[in-house]
């Protein structure tokens, strides 16, 4: 039978079939890796969390019992609280400082590219080196930070070795004693937050700058003609028009902050997460449970999935909350 004799329907179907095969062939190198090293592990994480898995070996079915164990695991709640402090300490400050600097840089500054290059430098630097250098900067006796504080008239502090909460420390100076639950993040955790802010602010500045440069200049000209001052211009024009970028920055900073690990792992210790467990964060707890102390991988997966649910939930909530107030233009 020759080609011509085949009905057009079948020829068309054959062509589509061929097209699908071809597409799959092109996609397959990426798809196989994504399926084996992304999709499969995520499915497996759920599976593993229902079993007792020690060092990669299943030793028994756990059902939901490991999740129930989480509820009464004070170390888990401590890690969750520390991680929340870390996120709450990072996101607003990073947002405010980076937007402020981006707005300054957007004033048709001559040396814009020099400033931008410098602010962005820490972003490309490895976290391992950042952690090592900042641990040295926060050294109680030989560190740069205390030297700076002392020369401008402040007391020197123990930083990474200080387990007391910062609110409690502040209150204590005024002679007030706060209850434990109000003590706040330890000064050690605050030191890690400062390091993280220093490292990440350049990224947010660059994202904000890109957003600011998308705002049409006519709006600013109109505002100037109407006699608006700088604050009015910012609140009436820049802030609403930049809101999609703000939305992105807040979500990304939150998600990334929830996954802090390297700074804690290398700046604190021994044991890691110290002093007194006040810097132990979720990802480090997952690492510790799953790979360090006995390799309780089932339990580590439970904690990891809680982290996943938190990140997913926050993304959805933020999307709902902020999207209503976001202006798209």
């Amino acid at each position: 039978m020759t080609e011509h004799a085949i009905p057009i329907e079948i020829r068309r179907r054959r062509k589509r079939y061929k097209e699908l095969l071809r597409a799959l062939l092109y996609i397959s190198p990426a798809a196989i890796i994504i399926l084996v090293f992304r999709v499969l592990p995520i499915i497996a994480a759920f599976g593993v969390s229902f079993y007792y898995v020690i060092m990669g070996k299943i030793v028994g079915f756990a059902g939901l019992s490991q999740y129930l164990m989480l509820l009464s695991d004070s170390e888990f709640w401590n890690a969750l609280r520390n991680t929340s402090y870390f996120v709450v300490g990072t996101v607003p400050v990073s947002l405010f400082v980076s937007l402020f600097i981006a707005v300054l840089l957007n004033q048709k500054i001559k040396a814009l590219s020099i400033y931008r290059t410098i602010y962005f430098l820490p972003v490309v630097t490895s976290l391992v080196a950042v952690a090592i250098v900042w641990k040295w900067i926060f050294h109680p006796r030989l560190g740069l930070f205390n030297s700076f504080l002392e020369s401008i008239g402040f007391n020197h502090l123990m930083w990474l070795e200080e387990p007391r909460g910062v609110f409690a420390m502040l209150a204590a100076r005024m002679g007030i004693e706060l209850p434990t639950w109000m003590a706040g993040p330890s000064l050690a955790l605050v030191a890690i937050i400062i390091t993280n802010l220093w490292r990440g602010i350049g990224y947010n500045i660059v994202i904000f700058l890109a957003g600011l440069q998308n705002i049409p200049n006519e709006y600013y000209e109109a505002a100037r003609i109407d006699g608006a001052n700088r604050f009015q211009t910012f609140w009436k024009i820049t802030w609403p028009l930049i809101s999609p970028t703000t939305f992105y920055v807040v979500i990304m900073t939150t998600i990334v902050s929830f996954q802090v690990f390297t700074l804690v792992y290398l700046m604190t210790g021994t044991p890691v997460g110290g002093p007194l467990g006040t810097t132990k964060v979720l990802v480090y707890y997952i690492f510790e449970k799953g790979f360090e102390s006995g390799g309780d991988m089932g339990y580590a997966s439970c904690v990891a999935l809680v982290l996943f649910v938190i990140v997913l939930g926050l993304t959805l909530i933020q999307r709902r909350l902020i999207e209503r107030r976001v202006h798209y233009y």
């Binding site: 995520i42 994480a45 997966s301 990891a304 990140v311």
Partner: peptide, 16 residues
């Protein structure tokens, strides 16, 4: 798949 934190697939990836 991009929104899944790395910590989630660390343990199963090690097993795989």
């Amino acid at each position: 798949m991009m929104i899944v934190p790395q910590a989630v697939y660390l343990v199963p990836s090690f097993i795989i």
